[in-house]
Design a protein around this nucleic acid. Structure first.
Lengths: 205, 205, 205, 205
DNA sequence: AATGAATGAGTCTTCATTCAT
DNA sequence: AATGAATGAAGACTCATTCAT
């Protein structure tokens, strides 16, 4: 009863493109397929997006904005840098697990061209890393982190995060990604914390 | 004096493809361009490679095998897990810095399609990670590493490594990548070492 | 104060189409552009015209009818074939100069397809030539013209007229077209008059 | 036995395009049709021409160069400006009659866009008019022509020529164009000659 | 082995036209 | 009458791949 109603066409197109780009890759997806999957005419895509590439960007921005909002909100509810980092990684993995197509786009499609790496991919990675950096700086101020460049550390931490997700994608998303949250957290906590003072991670779920 | 003669055509094609794939991306490079850059006829490519995609794979295998040989050799010359890890990361960054095109292919072009992620990208990442894992296991045996899944840790460590390289690529390779070796090493050493026993990293160059 | 209100939509569409067709050519003008220029909705065009091509015809008919009325009126005010011809050419060039877009349509857009040449272009050229022919026949009756086919002569005279206008268009309408009136008149008068009796053209402005 | 042999593909494409452009107009002809008519693959067109528009230009240049060579040669064989002009017009009409498609392209397709009018159409018209102007200047030197701007006169003369051809095209090329040669010649001779000295045109065929 | 002209399937994109509101 | 979102057929152009020489 809902379907095919109102001006949800833009959303339908984005959803269809997300599914197909994630599944088959940007270049192996035709605009005709996207239109069909979205149940719109081929030309309709071009009412909402000026080109196929702009659609890819839109697909990702869509994912990123809701994704980031949730991450920030989740993090802000925690007290202290460690709990925040723990929450961030857990939440990040959960969001990826619930949006495998977006995850795939995030990890590969956005790197099609050098120009895209320099713009969209860079921006999205920056969003993620800004959150991380904020936490690390807090840890630094509180004496919980060892002395380091928070920017570089955030980058590497984010790299570890991506590696976990890419492995999962390369394995057909066949296992539960969230179960790696603890392992990931421990790894990165150890990589950034002051030793000795390192708080024993509570055996959280 | 040698160039352009003899049957080095296969190598010339691979070199041309490496440069172009790295520069403009796999999909934005035509076989005609590759042929021209390699100074061979368009059809000649198909004498040595059955398809454009197979050429991409070959380009990468070429890079990977020489790359890995050097890494293994460099690592084997070091004594003890920490020194080995330190050497591995330093050498890895150096190799990337000297082959920016291959680095780009490594980080993005190999992820064009899910199938490629599952085969080539996975295999190449495995090669890297096997080396890392070997080192971590040695550290575990010697009691230098904390208890952990060496496989997962190797993956995350490799992720951090990739993040550093991707940042560099996204910044037009405009700075010296190797200068990040120490920062990276410290990060990953802390992430895998037993605390307290953590050897102070010598202020190596 | 009137603009944009009432049912002058048809006129607005014709005016917009005239400007755009003349400027960019029929095929390079989209109905969407016409609608926007005319400040009407895309669909509104099809309330007044059944197709884009019919709109082109309408644009031209509009121009032609007012154009021809003025020509006929101007000519009728003159006495004698020579004065009439002189007036016709002068007035014709003036009208073209004041409607460069229509001039362009007249000279090129109407010749898009053979069918259009056979219908609209032919009809418009006939209108012009009928006036000329009438004058020539008058000259013939009065013994001022040499013996000839007035139809053919009218056609050629009209051709010379078009050539002058086309040159002007090809030169970006960068000079005053009307200044060529005398030269044109002399040429065609000489081409149709009896020699010897040829009245010396007064050095009219 | 000849067909489909050697590298006559470029010529076949030009011939096919000439026929189709002349027949249905540039915009109503698809590259697929051209390819089929020329018995080549769709992509082959783009080996020889970088775009459909460049093909149109090539079609016309082809026509123009052979056309002009013949005109010049024919004219140069005649003695005296009047005989030359007579020959030029007669030959010009004959060439048009034998290449009705090129004639159509000449008169209409080349005027599709303002830019084309300014480049190709202008150039082709210049070629024709240069020949005419040369003759008129000779007549001027010999005192056979009345005082006038040879450039403008040549333009108008050429306009009269075009008008005759356009009429013929608008009438489906249903009559013999060459039969109008005398009428045209008389018209233009009268338009440019000194009166009194005007040589009586021999009742040539 | 090598060439490079030729192929033709495949794709993005445009745009005249329609129609539910 | 008017709107403008939606349609979908159509078309120029690309390019991986083949094959006769």
């Amino acid at each position: 009863m809902a379907r095919r109603r109102v001006g949800n066409k833009r959303e339908r197109i984005i959803a269809a493109a997300a599914r197909l780009f994630g599944d088959k890759g940007y270049h192996n997806t035709t605009t005709a397929e996207i239109a069909e999957t979205a149940s719109v005419a081929a030309g309709t895509i071009y009412i909402y997006f000026s080109s196929k590439e702009e659609l890819l960007v839109a697909v990702f921005e869509e994912f990123l904005s809701t994704h980031m909002d949730r991450l920030r909100e989740g993090v802000s509810r925690e007290q202290g840098p460690e709990a925040k980092l723990r929450r961030l990684l857990k939440l990040g993995l959960e969001l990826m697990e619930n949006n495998p197509d977006s995850a795939r786009i995030f990890l590969s499609q956005l790197r099609q061209s050098t120009s895209m790496i320099k713009t969209v991919a860079k921006r999205s990675s920056r969003a993620y890393r800004d959150i991380i950096e904020g936490i690390l700086e807090e840890g630094l101020r509180e004496g919980l982190c060892r002395d380091m460049s928070t920017a570089v550390a955030a980058g590497m931490l984010f790299g570890a995060f991506q590696a976990v997700v890419l492995d999962w994608v390369a394995d057909d998303c066949s296992y539960s990604l969230a179960s790696y949250a603890d392992e990931l957290t421990n790894f990165v906590l150890d990589g950034v914390c002051c030793h000795g003072e390192l708080p024993v991670p509570p055996a959280s779920s």
